[in-house]
């Protein structure tokens, strides 16, 4: 276990040390102490390492992560795991807005609540939120899966493409072109796997969720839908 004191050594040294691990094949363990809400902690990591951040982070923690498992023992600021490619990010507390924005792969687990725009423009990432998500979540979400054990705020899945959204609680309102869809056996199987990987299988069962997806009415312009643009 390598312990890195962010307050003492600074962000640049942390990230350059983590970037230097590229090509490492042995799983190594890192611990970052004194994050104090700093930005871009462990951004751009590309190695199968296990990084634990002891405390809360600022903007863009684990941004563009590849391969690494990054655990935040606190809450995460805006844009956590933005554009993640692969690997896993697990947040014990809450996540601020834009969590998992444009993520292309990997798994983001938020054990508390996520704020607005969770999964905005997601492109393949899987996101499991144990609590609730805020307004405009999954706006223009292209692909990947969003699982919410709690409730969803206003305008869920506005202008949605092919991402699949599963919400157990209430949905305050659906965004343009987002509709509830039938839950088929393959979706239940997918959900069971996501709940398990998202460390939530003890909290919820797949049957308790509803599925939401794109009505695909905005896919090609039709004057009768003009008010939705």
């Amino acid at each position: 276990m390598q312990t890195f004191d962010l307050a003492a050594k600074g962000l640049r040294e942390l990230n350059s040390s983590l970037h230097a691990l590229k090509g490492t094949t042995n799983m190594t363990e890192w611990e970052v102490i004194n994050p104090k809400g700093a930005h871009a902690i462990a951004a751009g990591v590309d190695a199968p390492v296990d990084i634990t951040v002891r405390g809360s982070t600022g903007y863009y923690c684990a941004g563009m992560n590849k391969q690494a498992t990054i655990r935040i023992k606190g809450s995460a600021g805006p844009g956590v795991a933005e554009n993640m490619m692969s690997g896993t990010v697990i947040i014990d507390g809450d996540a601020s807005q834009y969590a998992g924005a444009t993520g292309r792969g990997g798994l983001l687990v938020i054990k508390g609540n996520a704020s607005s725009r969770c999964g905005i423009s997601m492109k393949g990432i899987d996101i499991v939120v144990h609590g609730s998500i805020g307004h405009m979540s999954c706006f223009m979400a292209q692909s990947g899966n969003m699982v919410v054990l709690g409730d969803a705020g206003d305008a869920l899945g506005d202008s949605l493409y092919e991402a699949r959204l599963f919400v157990r609680g209430s949905v305050k309102s659906l965004g343009a072109d987002c509709i509830e869809k039938e839950m088929r056996p393959e979706h239940l199987a997918l959900l069971a796997d996501l709940l398990k990987r998202g460390e939530a299988d003890h909290k919820a069962k797949p049957e308790e969720f509803k599925r939401y997806g794109s009505a695909r009415k905005l896919y090609n312009f039709n004057i009768d839908n003009a008010e939705a643009y």
């Binding site: 104090k36 809400g37 809360s56 600022g58 903007y59 809450s75 600021g77 507390g93 809450d94 601020s96």
Partner: peptide
Amino acid sequence: SEYRALVNLPGIETARVWEPEP
């Protein structure tokens, strides 16, 4: 505006922390 601003407040580790709704 950011969590950073709050990190040195007494008892912040156990405070109720949230984002105001729109």
